[in-house]
Every structure is written in C-alpha cells, then in structure tokens.
Computed example of a mutant assay.
Amino acid sequence: PWQRDSKDISKGVIEARFVHVFVLGILFTGTKDLLKSQVIAADFTIKTVGLWEIYSGLVLLAALLFRPHNLPVLVLSLLIQTLMTKFIWKPLRHDAAEITIMHYWFGQAFFYFQGNSNNIATVDVSAGFVGLDTYMEVPAAFLTAFATFAGPVLWASHLVSFLSSETRSGSALSHACFCYALTCSFPVSAYIILVTSLRHHLFIWSVFSPKLLYEGMHVLITAAICVFFTAMDQTNTKS
C-alpha cells in the first residue's frame, strides 16, 4: 500500500540533505558578510545583512527539525518577533536591557511551548537523525541540541540582529550581553543551591538531576550566545 508504480516512497533523507546544504549556504554567506564587515569597517549595512542571513538560516533549520505539530509554534514565534519589533521596540525605543530581558523570557517561553520540560523523556532525539542514514555522533548531538533549545537560540539571534541594525554603538551589545548572562545566572544559581541542599533527597536522580542537566546545557548555550555578542561588540568597536 505504500508503493506507487513499483517505486518506494522517499524517506525524505535526500530532501532533508538538500535543505541542510541550503542552510549551510545561507550561514556561510552570512558569516562571509560578517567577516567582510571586519575589513570594511565603514560599511555598516554588510554586517546587518550578514546577521539577518544567519538568523534566517537558523529559522530554516528549525523548520526542518521541528515536528509538524510544532511548526505553528515557530510561525507564532516569528509573528510575535515581527509585531514586537514593529509596534513596541522600535516606536517606544526601549533600552537594551529591557529588550534583552524580553527576548530572554520569550525564548524561555517558546522552549516550553515546543513541548520541552524538565524531563529527559521530552527530548526529541529524532531531530538528530533528520537527513542521516546512520548514526553519527557529532551531527546528531548538534541537531538534537539545536532542536531542543531552538526557542532561546532563535530569540537570542533575533536580539543580536535587532540591536545591531538599530544602533551602531557597541555599548548596546555589551549591555545586552551582560543583561542576558545575568538573567540566566539567577535561576541557575538558585537551582544549584537547591540541589546542593537537597542532595540526600529520595528523588535527587529522578527529579532534580534532569533539571540540573537542562540548566547546565542552557548555561553552555548562553555562554556561546555571549561569545557571539562579544564578537559583534568588537566589530562595532572597530567600526
């Protein structure tokens, strides 16, 4: 019943690989524009275009990895970003700290809107095999991590792109980096203290340790985001 004209229906691996190549092309183009902006310091437009290209590539990758029922969540996220940018952040001219906190909490909200929780069982490991015929550790781990934390990553990428396009001063990005790291550090610090005090609890491995693993991964992603913030801040300083 799953055959038509004696031909097997495609599993989608070839199509997914085509999208992977397309995403890599977009990310490569965006990275090239960012590197070009380092050389041509006076041309501010090149860096802005490069950042939006990287953001677009990440959105396309998320659309590929998400399950069909999560695609409306991605569309809703993009719609909220567009509406907030057009009607709130640009007209009201919020400072970098306020915009950063809003981006952080929207990213956290969409992390849970995807169906994630503090339980390891909610991690969609099938995202790590999109476009792969066999198990390969590095691509599978990267794709699974990105699919799991796509909400915070996309909102952080939008934050960098928005701040870079709206202001040419490096102070906005450095301030945003500090606020983003500080906002992330509060729940992590509180949870570490809580886990340490309850280390002899009966459910330490079944309840507390999965949440600690999520928080540890979130800290790593936040560190990578802050490195990206710092790199963009250095670019603004040179320009």
Rank of each mutant, 00 (worst) to 15 (best):
R199H: 14
S126H: 02
L83C: 13
K90L: 06
T235D: 02
G131W: 04
S117N: 04
V13C: 09
Y180Q: 05
F44Y: 09
T82P: 00
D95W: 01
H103Y: 06
T45C: 07
T48N: 13
F106V: 06
F228N: 09
S37V: 09
H103T: 09
Q81S: 11
M217E: 12
Q3K: 13
N118T: 04
V219W: 07
T167S: 13
V153T: 12
E15F: 05
A127F: 00
L132N: 11
G30Y: 06
T134K: 11
N119G: 02
P187R: 05
A62D: 08
A121R: 09
I54T: 07
W155K: 01
A109E: 02
S209A: 12
I9L: 12
N236A: 01
G151Q: 03
H103E: 08
V19M: 11
L71S: 07
K238S: 07
F129M: 15
S56Y: 04
A156T: 14
K7L: 14
H103R: 07
F66H: 05
I120K: 01
K238W: 00
S189F: 15
H94A: 05
L61E: 15
L24V: 01
F66Y: 13
K86M: 04
M136I: 05
S117W: 00
S10D: 13
V219P: 02
L35S: 06
A109Q: 03
F178K: 15
R17E: 12
Y180G: 06
T31P: 03
V195K: 10
V195M: 13
S164M: 08
I46A: 12
H218N: 14
T148G: 05
V73K: 15
L194V: 04
L143S: 04
C184P: 00
I46Q: 15
A63E: 03
A97H: 05
T183G: 01
L154C: 01
F111V: 04
D5Y: 08
T148D: 04
P139R: 05
I54S: 10
I88K: 04
V125Q: 08
L198V: 09
K47A: 15
N118D: 06
S164W: 01
V59S: 10
F66L: 14
V23Y: 02
L64F: 04
S209I: 08
V75N: 03
L74A: 10
P210L: 05
A97Y: 09
K86V: 10
V49I: 15
T148I: 03
